[in-house]
Design a binder for these strands. Structure first.
Lengths: 311, 311
DNA sequence: TAGTGTTGATCACTATGACTTATCATTAGC
DNA sequence: GCTAATGATAAGTCATAGTGATCAACACTA
């Protein structure tokens, strides 16, 4: 008994004959000749090694054997499965269904993504949106290339031959100060001189390799060497430490909560090269229509909210 | 997009290419040429109307498109389904698995069937035994011919061109009397004269068409016209009414509970033609090995417990 | 009981299409 | 640029699904 030679034709014939209780009826149903149905069933029985129909002969209807009944169940399930696959592919092709898994990182998750997702869902309400958050670009890229993500946000600048990249806009680095702290009153109404941060104990991220890489590099280029009194990946925790007076923090604007009365947001002078917010898909890979739609909506949303990157 | 042209070959190729991430690897895996795989995938993509693989060209691995991923899921499920179908058919063929649904009626269910089933399960422990009980032979036969039963007990004599019948033995009709009632002491130690039941108010079944048909006919042939004070399909209820003194009952021996101290079981003189206990399968239909095994075990069990039918 | 009509099986033939071999086009890596 | 590896493609071969004709088995009817 070997299922190797099994074919969907066999299963279709099995179902048709079982429904019509006759080979001739099944032949009409399938649009082929009776002889063909006869050979199909014979082939099926040869493949699986058991008879699936009793043929009483004459005008009496053919009946399923126990093995035929068992196989018929499975055959019907297979057909249902293929039908649902067809439905899913059709949804996927029209962008009106299926699944869209998005990679993201914290500041985007909190400030930007909710609006983009809600806009997207307004246009494609039956798409199941999934989110996966990582702190490091590399983790996001790994999952993207492994096929676990359809599209991912990245903190730029970022270059890779493996990715198709879209720049959504820039997210300037700003200085967070305790609202009633000493530094907050040092330059009222004006920009904060970046150089004055030299040797100040600050709040920042544990590993400068992460999202804050370009910030660290920018500071160093100005001759400012940051020192850290507290480090956390969590933007809320950083802002909380600023509010508590642990020290100032340089953060991407999107990562801050400017409505917090306990802090003051200041622009730096000279400014640091702003962080870029990018979307990435695997290089050359076919994108589902839903993915394209998401990218378009993200671009539109960001055009309204973020300063565009310089060419 | 039409799944009409879809074929298991297509799905097998999809799975193989996805696993090997190359057409050549899949070709080796499938034991066919690379060109064949290429055409398979092309045919699949034509059938469903979408590309399932991105081919970057050169030595880079092929990758699934979103549609390909979706279809791959379903393809794997289909293959798993077919594997389980193969397993089930193999179990069914060896009689060591699968399902056996038995039709039965009350007296058999209570007295005979439990022993037969337990013997059967001792030999084929992985077969799932299902029971369906009906009071009337016709209901059992209907379900049997509709394919809902594999085999059914019948109360004989029964004849039908649609059935393969096996006679297991006979179940004599006996008289149930209240233990301390008047009739119980009328003929101590001897058989009860059947003719004395004329005009006696008795306990019996509601519709003489049912299992009691042959009993009614037998009484009438002797000139005895039964009258009923109480009718029920339930053997226990009938016996209870006899115990309560409502009247005597003629029942098949297997339907009685002789250990009940409240009743006395008497043989009739002249005896009524005994009821036959039969097993039926659809005429000419292929029987699963498990069904055959059940029939053999039932025959063996009955040979030990019931008087054999006269030729 | 013979005749009739219906059914599935079988055979020889046809036609479709699956597969192979050979070759080309594309790309990565040197 | 050159090489090696991959997938696509074309032409030819061959397997096989399908057809039409016919046969055999059976139920039903007269």
């Amino acid at each position: 008994m070997s299922f190797e030679d099994l074919d969907l034709r066999h299963l279709r014939a099995l179902i048709a004959v079982a429904e019509e209780t006759s080979f001739i009826g099944a032949a009409y149903e399938l649009g082929i000749s009776q002889a063909a149905v006869s050979q199909q069933i014979k082939g099926l029985e040869t493949a699986i090694g058991v008879r699936v129909f009793d043929r009483p002969g004459g005008p009496r209807p053919v009946t399923l054997t126990p093995a035929g009944r068992a196989l018929l169940d499975h055959a019907r399930t297979v057909m249902d499965l293929l039908d649902s696959a067809e439905q899913e592919l059709s949804d996927l092709a029209s962008g009106t269904g299926g699944r869209l898994t998005i990679g993201t990182y914290q500041s985007v998750s909190v400030q930007l993504l909710p609006d983009v997702v809600s806009r997207f869902l307004a246009e494609a309400p039956n798409v199941a949106v999934g989110l996966t958050e990582h702190a490091r670009n590399e983790d996001l890229v790994d999952e993207l290339l492994a096929g676990q993500l359809d599209v991912t946000f990245l903190a730029g600048p970022y270059e890779s031959d493996d990715l198709d990249l879209t720049t959504l806009g820039t997210d300037p680095f700003v200085l967070l100060l305790q609202a009633d702290g000493e530094l907050a009153h040092a330059h009222p109404g004006r920009r904060f001189p970046t150089l004055e941060l030299n040797d100040v104990l600050m709040v920042g991220e544990p590993d400068p390799q992460y999202g804050a890489a370009s910030m660290t590099a920018g500071l160093r280029a100005l001759g400012v060497r940051p020192r850290y009194a507290f480090r956390s990946y969590d933007n809320g925790a950083q802002q909380g430490m600023v509010r508590a007076g642990v020290g100032p923090a340089i953060m991407p604007l999107l990562a801050t909560d400017p409505s917090d009365p306990g802090i003051v947001v200041k622009t730096l002078d000279p400014p640091l090269e702003p962080r870029t917010i990018m979307l990435a898909t695997p290089r050359g890979a076919t994108r589902a229509p839903a993915t394209d739609a998401f990218i378009q909506i993200a671009k539109r949303e960001c055009r309204e909210r973020l300063a565009l990157a310089r060419p």
